[in-house]
Design a protein around this nucleic acid. Structure first.
Lengths: 192, 192
DNA sequence: GACAAAAGTTACTGATCGGTACATTTAAGC
DNA sequence: GCTTAAATGTACCGATCAGTAACTTTTGTC
C-alpha cells in the first residue's frame, strides 16, 4: 500500500463527489472512475463515509491553502487581503468546473450535526473564521470577530447566489458590500 | 382523487424531504410515512422528481408568504421591512425543526442547472430578489437591484452559517451588516 | 341497486445500493 | 528460488432503489 496510491484514490473520488454529489455517487461508479477494484477500495477505506471524510480533508486543506495564498498574492495588508478574497472568489466562480462549496453541499446531504461528515464540514468554516478574525484584528478592528463574521456572511452568500445562478455578479456584489463594511469598521483606507 | 389528498401527500413528503434529504429519502420511506400505498403514490405523481417538484412548489409558496407577511407585520416602511427580514430569519433559525434552506439543499443535490428541480429552486431565489428590488426602489435607493442583491447575499450567508452551526448569532450579524449597507445606500433612517 | 370509473392494495420487477468471501497475483525478505 | 504477506480481481451477498402489473375496494351517477 504505497502512500501515493491512497492519495490518488482520494483525489479522484473528490472530483467525482464534487461533480456528482455524495449519495448520488455509488461505490461502483467510484470504482469504475478510479480504475481500481472494489476490494482494493475497501482495503484503503473502511467504508464510504471514510472515503468521503478523506476527500473532505483534502478539499479543506487545498482550498484554504489556495485561498490564503491568493489573498496574500493580491494584497499585502490585512484589510486589502480581506477584500481580495472576493477577487479570488471571482476567479473561482469563473472556473469551468465550478460547482459551489463542497462543504455546504456535504452539510446539505448529511444534516445531523453529530454526523462526522457534517462536523468536519463545519470545522472548515470554523478555520476560515479563525483566519479572518486574525486578519480583522491585525487590521485594527474594534470587534475583529464581528467584522470577520460579516465578511464571511457575504462570502457564503456569494457562493450560494452564484450557484443558484441568477442575475448579477455575486462576487462583485459581495466585494462592494464588504468594502462598505470595512470602511465602516476601520475608517477610510489609509494604505497606498 | 379528492384534491386535498394530493395536497396532504405533498405536505407530508415535504416534511420528510426537508428533514432527510432528497436522494436519501426513498419512495418506500415516503409511502410508510404517509400511510398510503405505493401505487396510490404513483397515481398522484408520475415519478419521484415530480413529487419533489410539487413539494418545492409548496415550500416556495408557503415560505415566501410567511416571510413577506412577517416583514410587513414587523415594519411599515420598505426600509424597515428589509431590515425586519433578519428578525424574521432569527425566528426561523430558532425553530426546533429548522434545517436550513430547502432550495439550497435541492440545488446541492441536483447540480445540473438544466434539471427542473435545480431550475425551480433558482426561481424561488429570483422571486425573492424581485420582491427586494421593489422594496429597495420604494425605499428610494439609487441602485435598487444592487442594494437588494447585497441584502440577499447577507440572508443566504446567514442561513448557511447558521446551518454550519458555528459561533455567533448569524441572523443578528447579518442584520447589523444590513443596517450599515442600508445606511450607506439610503442615508440615515428618517422614519420614526 | 346497477354500473362505470377512480382510488386503493398486494406482490412483484430489474437495477443498483454498500459491502464482503475467497481465489489469485504481485512484491519483498532471506 | 522459496516463503510469506500485502494488494488485487472475480463474483457474489442481502437490502433497498424507483417503478409497475393485476386485482379489489370505494365512490359517484342514474
Amino acid at each position: 500500500m504505497r502512500p501515493n496510491k491512497r492519495d490518488e484514490l482520494v483525489r479522484k473520488a473528490l472530483a467525482v463527489f464534487y461533480r456528482n454529489g455524495f449519495h448520488a455517487t455509488g461505490m461502483d461508479m467510484l470504482v469504475a472512475e478510479t480504475g481500481v477494484s472494489k476490494t482494493s477500495m475497501y482495503k484503503h477505506f473502511r467504508n464510504k463515509d471514510e472515503l468521503i471524510l478523506a476527500a473532505l480533508r483534502l478539499r479543506d486543506e487545498s482550498f484554504r491553502n489556495w485561498l490564503y495564498r491568493r489573498m496574500e498574492a493580491l494584497s499585502e495588508c490585512p484589510r486589502g487581503q480581506m477584500l481580495a478574497m472576493f477577487d479570488a472568489l471571482a476567479e473561482w466562480f469563473a472556473a469551468p468546473d465550478f460547482r459551489g462549496c463542497m462543504f455546504i453541499k456535504a452539510v446539505a446531504e448529511f444534516q445531523e450535526p453529530e454526523h462526522p461528515i457534517h462536523a468536519q464540514s463545519a470545522e472548515h468554516k470554523r478555520l476560515l473564521a479563525e483566519h479572518f478574525t486574525a486578519l480583522a484584528r491585525k487590521a485594527g478592528a474594534a470587534e475583529p470577530d464581528r467584522l470577520a463574521r460579516s465578511i464571511l456572511l457575504l462570502k457564503e452568500g456569494a457562493i450560494v447566489t452564484r450557484v443558484m445562478g441568477n442575475a448579477g455578479d455575486a462576487a462583485a456584489d459581495a466585494r462592494a458590500a464588504a468594502d462598505i463594511l470595512l470602511e465602516h469598521a476601520l475608517g477610510p483606507d489609509t494604505a497606498r
